[in-house]
């Protein structure tokens, strides 16, 4: 199987998926170098025989966590605290840029 490799194009796609801006070519080169070094980790993990093993998703014994179905309203004070932290707001809403753009 082909080894994992981060190409220029792949980095661009990955950065878009992560919604992470890459500043300039210098930063891009640094990412490519470091990330391709990290690809060695993926190769190492192809070594062992794990054909009979299931992936670990939890280290706890899976169990249901039950609680009574009681609505606990968010105290006004907490609402206010949360809105204080908003970079931009209008009334009791977070304000964001237009989501749907004209193509």
């Amino acid at each position: 199987m082909e080894k994992s490799f981060m190409s220029n194009e792949e980095l661009k796609n990955t950065a878009f998926m992560a919604r992470l801006d890459i500043k300039d070519d210098k930063e891009k080169e640094k990412y490519l170098k470091d990330l391709n070094n990290m690809m060695a980790y993926i190769e190492v993990l192809q070594e062992p025989d794990i054909s009979n093993l299931k992936p670990t998703t939890h280290v706890t014994k899976l169990r249901n966590v039950w609680r009574d179905d009681i609505v606990k309203p968010c105290p006004q004070e907490v609402r206010e605290q949360i809105l204080i932290a908003a970079p931009d707001k209008e009334g009791s809403f977070f304000k964001v840029k237009k989501v749907i753009e004209a193509q």
Binding site: L45, Q46, P48, L53, K54, P55, T56
Partner: peptide, 14 residues
Amino acid sequence: RCYHQAQRVRTLLI
């Protein structure tokens, strides 16, 4: 090949 494989090797370690 990456994440799923890692979680299986994690089982091996455990």
